[in-house]
């Protein structure tokens, strides 16, 4: 029942060109997103999960640049003649980030729930004004129609008495309501794909549960695809159906959420899952921690990026060659020489 993906990221590379050198923030990332699927991008700081999300939307700030790979997206509403391929895909990586085509996709087709709830609304305009503005940018509706759509969106995301909130400023709302308003903003134009970049990191755990529930029900009702970016493995387990585990700009493992959490294949995924204290681990015991720290992205180790911290490190192999992502079982893929012996030679 593998249907066609609506987004297929292939060997994406996004580099940052700094004075000190090149940071390969995203270095050969591939995954697919199907309609109605929640794909979780998970990893620690510096793994490139956020940059991947920004690359798809083509909003990477300079000195960062998408330097390679394909971001094949199947537009659901807008028609893009120029890049329209035979199979209905358009390569976002080839579009001009500021161009008309990319702008027509952003918001209307692919929307973003940003990390910083305070910064995503202008403090000098009301929530309603900004919602109407966003709706009229992509839909040919008049002021009154847009207002009705906006109110409908606010109601959908569970904002109580939306008529009042419509005239509120973002700083008048509490954290939870603001987060809901941002979701309403992202949903304003009925996007087919939603990129949620750490949407719950800044909020409390009870509010987080509300927001996660909301996202889950919205996704179910609309059969929307979501790319959910977070560092929190608990959140990923609760919302994602497919998980992409990243480390230092590379995908180390990806697969259905059950497989990732119950039969992880890559040593990093295994170690990461073991090292988190959960409500279910025995209290006051030593956690099997991953040794060492995440290398600075300037100093990506040669070969497998995880090898200096890996317990199964094989000298001569892991530090010389970089493993590639290969299928393990079913839909689960991993990039590790333990699972796929390195090709001889070299």
């Amino acid at each position: 029942m593998q249907e066609q993906p609506i987004l297929s990221v292939r060997d994406l590379r996004t580099y940052f060109f700094l004075d000190e050198g090149i940071v390969r923030a995203v270095d050969g990332v591939s995954f697919e997103v199907r309609a109605g699927e929640v794909v979780g991008l998970v990893g620690e700081s510096g793994c490139g999960k956020s940059v991947t999300g920004k690359s798809i939307l083509r909003i990477v700030e300079p000195p960062g640049r998408v330097v390679g790979g394909e971001i094949l997206y199947r537009p659901q509403k807008v028609s893009i003649q120029k890049a329209q391929q035979a199979n209905g895909f358009v390569d976002l990586a080839k579009l001009d980030p500021m161009g008309r085509e990319m702008r027509s996709i952003r918001g209307a087709e692919i929307a973003l729930i940003p990390q910083e709830p305070m910064a995503s609304f202008s403090p000098v305009h009301t929530i309603g004004f900004q919602l109407v503005e966003a709706i009229r940018l992509h839909q040919a509706v008049d002021e009154e129609e847009a207002r009705l759509i906006a109110l409908e969106r606010l109601r959908e995301v569970g904002v109580p008495s939306p008529e009042q909130r419509f005239h509120a400023y973002s700083w008048e709302l509490s954290g939870g309501l603001r987060q809901r308003a941002i979701i309403a903003m992202a949903l304003a134009c009925n996007p087919a794909l939603l990129i949620a970049d750490e949407p719950t990191t800044a909020i409390d755990v009870t509010t987080q549960a509300q927001v996660l529930n909301l996202l889950r029900s919205l996704q179910r009702e609309r059969r929307m695809a979501i790319i959910f970016i977070t560092h929190d493995l608990g959140v990923i387990a609760q919302v994602a159906s497919y998980v992409v585990v990243m480390y230092l700009g590379c995908v180390v493992e990806r697969g259905p959420v059950e497989d990732i959490f119950h039969s992880p294949q890559h040593p990093y995924t295994q170690a990461l899952l073991r090292s988190i204290p959960s409500l279910r681990t025995p209290p006051r015991s030593f956690l099997p921690a991953i040794e060492g720290s995440i290398p600075h992205p300037f100093n990506r180790p040669p070969g497998c990026p995880f090898h200096p911290r890996c317990r199964s490190f094989m000298p001569g192999t892991c530090d010389r060659q970089q493993p590639t992502l290969q299928p393990v079982q079913g839909l689960q893929w991993a990039s590790c020489f333990l699972l796929h012996p390195a090709p001889q030679g070299r």
């Binding site: 009870t206 549960a209 529930n213 990923i236 059950e258």
Partner: peptide
């Protein structure tokens, strides 16, 4: 109940608290 459990098999447990602090 609001703490997300890192186990996809235990999903129904999340019953969110209404309202805010």
């Amino acid at each position: 109940a609001a703490v997300p459990i890192p186990d996809p098999r235990i999903r129904s447990a999340m019953l969110p608290l209404e309202g805010e602090v």
